Simulated scan of single mutants.
Amino acid sequence: MSTLTTTRTTAPARANLLRWPIPSRLRKSILVTHVVSAGAWIGIDIAATVLVAIGWTRSGDDRTAVYQALADFSVVPLLLSALAAGLVCLVTGVLLGLATKWGLVRYRWVAVKLVLNVVACTMLLLFLGPISELSSGEQPLQDMWFVAFLATSALALLGFAMVLSVFKPWGRVRKQPR
């Protein structure tokens, strides 16, 4: 029986040593910033996906004009905003991982979210080039499938990351010794 009580008292002490001590108000502020930036990122990605779909339904010179307007006034500023939101989400996620019991890569769902965030930010960078090329007429409009693929797959990744945040599936990356 004393072994159980010793294990219970040393396990939280060990977990506290692995965490970065942070005041509760600061942790909650970081959490709110993380949730707001993730929500903004998803909203911006939805808007960009809708704009790309609108451009894709057009034909001929009308399509070129739509893509020029999208690139100049909507998509590029939206994507830069999404990239900023994604980077804020990444930084606050890392801070939360260091400051909470979930850890940075202690649980599989947190590690997967970290990877998804990096992948989605990379996809945003890949998305900027084709839209700019389409607006200037450098890239043929038949290559629009790549832009549509990036937009919809980024939305799917962000949705999956949101599901991971709510359900917290799987377990620890490595089992803790008792």
Rank of each mutant, 00 (worst) to 15 (best):
L80N: 09
L80V: 09
L80I: 08
S81L: 15
S81E: 08
S81C: 15
A82T: 00
A82P: 00
L83R: 10
A84E: 09
A84S: 15
A84I: 15
A85P: 14
A85S: 15
A85V: 13
A85Y: 05
A85K: 14
A85I: 13
A85G: 12
A85N: 08
G86P: 14
G86R: 13
G86C: 12
G86N: 10
G86A: 14
G86T: 11
L87C: 12
L87E: 10
L87W: 14
L87N: 12
C89D: 00
C89E: 02
C89T: 15
C89P: 02
C89V: 05
C89W: 07
C89G: 15
L90W: 04
L90V: 07
L90E: 01
L90C: 12
L90P: 13
V91Y: 11
V91S: 10
T92C: 06
T92Q: 04
T92D: 03
T92A: 13
G93E: 00
G93R: 08
G93V: 07
V94M: 06
V94T: 09
V94F: 01
L95D: 03
L95T: 14
L95F: 14
L95P: 00
L96T: 11
L96C: 10
L96I: 13
L96E: 07
L96V: 14
G97D: 01
G97M: 02
G97P: 07
G97V: 08
G97N: 04
G97I: 12
L98F: 14
L98W: 09
L98D: 04
L98E: 05
L98R: 08
A99R: 04
A99T: 15
A99E: 08
A99N: 08
A99G: 13
T100C: 07
T100Q: 02
T100K: 10
T100W: 05
K101I: 06
K101F: 11
K101E: 12
K101P: 06
W102M: 00
W102R: 06
W102Y: 12
W102P: 03
G103F: 03
G103P: 08
G103R: 04
G103V: 02
G103C: 04
L104D: 06
L104R: 05
V105K: 01
V105I: 12
R106K: 12
R106C: 00
R106A: 11
R106Y: 04
Y107F: 14
Y107H: 08
Y107E: 02
R108I: 12
R108E: 10
W109E: 02
W109M: 03
W109A: 04
W109N: 04
V110S: 09
V110A: 14
V110D: 03
V110K: 04
V110T: 12
A111Y: 01
A111F: 10
A111W: 06
A111E: 09
A111D: 05
A111K: 05
V112N: 00
V112K: 00
K113V: 03
K113L: 03
K113P: 02
K113H: 05
K113C: 05
L114K: 06
L114M: 10
